[in-house]
Design a binder for these strands. Structure first.
Length: 634
DNA sequence: ACGGCTCGGACA
DNA sequence: TTGTCCGAG
């Protein structure tokens, strides 16, 4: 349900940029002969010509729609070019479009806060840039207005005049405009420049909306498409919303919007104005009620998040009708495929963005053998995410089995799976500051290991080392603490560390000295002194597979475990089968090896395992517990 | 045989 | 926190 956010005091300049039929444009760049032609991108050509996921404007003129089948599109538009989405591992592979989207984000993020809203959309907060322009170089004469900006559509500006562009030019540099409108005008100019840059540097066109908040910017970004932008001055907001059908508003395209129409007789946003905030709250709860009341008045306080990358990675596939999966073997086969792709994407996120995902989730749709409409849903399941294709596959299968067990409820019926997906989420940056640690990687007779923070990507010619990252599963308090080099394995360890609860800031603590590096590795590998041995012991160390323990136990271990990503194949890009991620459960580590560590490191380790804030004292553990082992001696 | 494949957010 | 549901494109 939508929630209202506090409205910032100062007027903001917000833009929503939306790529025009993006997948089609990506394909047109690859195959220029498709430019200007009716074209659509389809996935899976085998059944009824595949499903359309993007349609060029030339094809839209024929009535071709997203969600049509390829065959239907051919019927209404015989000349249409249908381009297939690349297929890898038996499923659609959208990576081509993802990376094209990144190209665009890289440009659009240059003028202010930028939020990647989807593969082909971003929000920009251009407030500062617009203010800056107003101070430094405000638009002053109509002739001087940048050509693309002059093509803007200004909501509420009379356009029956004939010479629209002249009016726009005049509006953009109006001297008598109020401060807010001047800011918007500057925003429009900046966005026009950005859009031109996007076109020049990527060959992609886009459309945009410029307004004082995200909601309004989003509403109008698609109003004039393709390759145009639209501005919403405050003075035009009420009229604009008054006649806007509720279903057009973001968040009201579904059941909530239908309920407004059916239950309250509200057809336009303007109709909402006749309801008090209290009445709306009665109908839809406090949060949604307030939200509705505000959007009716054009108020939306939602901030533009500073985020250029997705928050999760998911891979899924459906198995409709006869394709449904009916036994463990076929499920395993497909999960393996999905996990291969997921692993690849995780590896490249780690490589390019220095990020690590912490949670693996499995979703499925299922029906029970004979039952028509199975009421029961297949439960989603998650577990700590371990890097490496093999680990992901193993864990995903266990999650599936766990979900299936719950789904079947100990009945012995046949089942069939109609969709599967695996999702990696809770993605964290590997904390910067590693470079200050890297000197410890540099052994007496070797060169420094690749720097994480200094180089945007790891050079191809780096010898494949075993770079080990350790991060805490719980919360975001994480800081690199030490690294080591041993036996030719380059090992970088990032340890969990607690930070003051209320402080957003991290307070890095550097270790002045790192000794006994072999002990560190032993500590981490529970007595195995090399990474190779560690690999063999891995199964023991990560005793906690998904779905194999009680809920309580699982939660406990999830909260306290430490996870490591082995990046051994990042550089070589080779053999995935030897790529591993290691999870270290504190409870499984032999305390005796800790005693060999220098006191500094012992103290550091204490920091890792300090119990979570409201840790239950009643939790039972096996053998000697770490917390008792590490309890303050005094 | 459902549009498929992704994503994000709110809620209990 | 996990799992569910909704909504977007």
């Amino acid at each position: 349900m939508p929630v209202a956010r506090p409205e910032p005091q100062e007027p903001r300049v917000i833009a929503h940029v939306d790529m025009d039929c993006f997948y089609v444009q990506v394909e047109q760049r690859r195959s220029p002969e498709l430019r200007g032609q009716p074209t659509a991108v389809v996935q899976y050509n085998d059944w009824k010509g595949g499903g359309l996921i993007a349609v060029s404007y030339e094809a839209r003129k024929f009535g071709v729609k997203r969600s049509m089948r390829g065959d239907d599109a051919k019927r209404v538009c015989p000349g249409i070019n249908l381009v297939q989405v690349p297929v890898a591992r038996g499923k659609a592979d959208l990576n081509l479009y993802r990376s094209a989207g990144s190209e665009v984000v890289a440009i659009l993020s240059s003028k202010g806060k930028c939020e990647r809203a989807s593969i082909d959309e971003v929000y920009l907060d251009l407030t500062d840039a617009a203010k800056e322009m107003l101070l430094q170089a405000p638009p002053d004469s109509p002739e001087q207005i940048f050509e693309e900006a002059a093509k803007s559509n200004i909501l509420g500006l009379p356009s029956d005049d004939g010479d629209k562009e002249k009016n726009v030019r005049a509006w953009l540099c109006r001297v008598d405009a109020d401060y807010q409108d001047k800011l918007l005008a500057c925003g429009a100019i900046i966005v026009a420049q950005l859009r031109v840059r996007v076109l020049e540097e990527t060959q992609f066109t886009c459309s945009a909306g410029i307004a004082h908040n995200k909601m309004l910017a989003k509403l109008v970004s698609g109003m004039h498409k393709p390759a145009q932008q639209t501005v919403v001055p405050s003075s035009s907001v009420q009229d604009f919303l008054a006649s806007l059908p509720v279903k057009k508003m973001k968040q009201l395209g579904g059941k909530l919007g239908s309920s407004l129409q059916d239950d309250l007789g509200v057809d336009t946003i303007g109709d909402l104005l006749s309801f008090t905030e209290e009445k709306l709250q009665e109908c839809y709860g406090v949060n949604t009620g307030t939200w509705l009341w505000k959007i009716a008045r054009g108020i939306s306080g939602e901030e533009v998040e500073d985020r250029l990358l997705p928050k999760s990675h998911g891979c899924g596939k459906t198995f409709p009708g006869p394709k449904a999966l009916k036994n463990n073997t076929s499920v395993k086969g497909w999960l393996d495929q999905l996990c291969e792709e997921l692993s690849e994407r995780l590896q490249s996120d780690l490589n390019q963005n220095k990020r690590i995902a912490q949670t693996l989730t499995l979703h499925a749709r299922a029906s029970k053998g004979n039952e028509r409409d199975s009421v029961k849903k297949f439960p989603s399941k998650s577990c700590p995410l371990r890097y490496g294709t093999g680990k992901l596959q193993e864990d995903a299968m266990k999650l599936f089995e766990s979900g299936l067990h719950d789904f079947l409820d100990s009945q012995n019926t046949k089942w069939s799976i109609t969709s599967l997906s695996v999702i990696a989420s809770k993605i964290f940056d590997i904390p910067s500051g590693t470079s200050s640690i890297l000197k410890y990687i540099k052994g007496p007779n070797s060169t420094a290991a690749p720097s994480l923070s200094d180089s945007s990507s790891i050079p191809e010619d780096q010898p494949p080392g075993n770079n080990l990252y350790v991060t805490p599963i719980h919360e975001e308090q994480c800081e690199p603490s030490f690294s080591e080099k041993e036996d030719g394995d380059s090992v970088s360890v990032i340890s969990a560390k607690q930070y003051p609860a209320n402080e957003g800031k991290r307070t890095p603590k550097k270790l002045s000295e790192v000794k006994g590096t072999s002990s560190i590795l032993k500590f981490l590998s529970r007595g195995q002194s090399t990474i190779h041995e560690k690999r063999k012991a891995d199964g023991l160390i990560c005793s906690q597979g998904p779905g194999s323990s009680s809920q309580a136990n699982k939660a406990e271990e999830h909260g306290r475990s430490i996870q490591a990503a082995d990046r051994s194949n990042i550089n070589s890009g080779g053999d995935q089968s030897t790529s591993n991620t290691w999870m270290f459960n504190i409870e499984d580590i032999d305390p005796s090896v800790v005693e060999e560590l220098p006191p500094e490191i012992q103290r550091e380790i204490q920091g890792w395992i300090r119990p979570p804030k409201q840790a239950s004292t009643s939790t039972k553990r096996r053998g000697s517990t770490i917390s008792s082992y590490f309890a303050p001696k005094n």
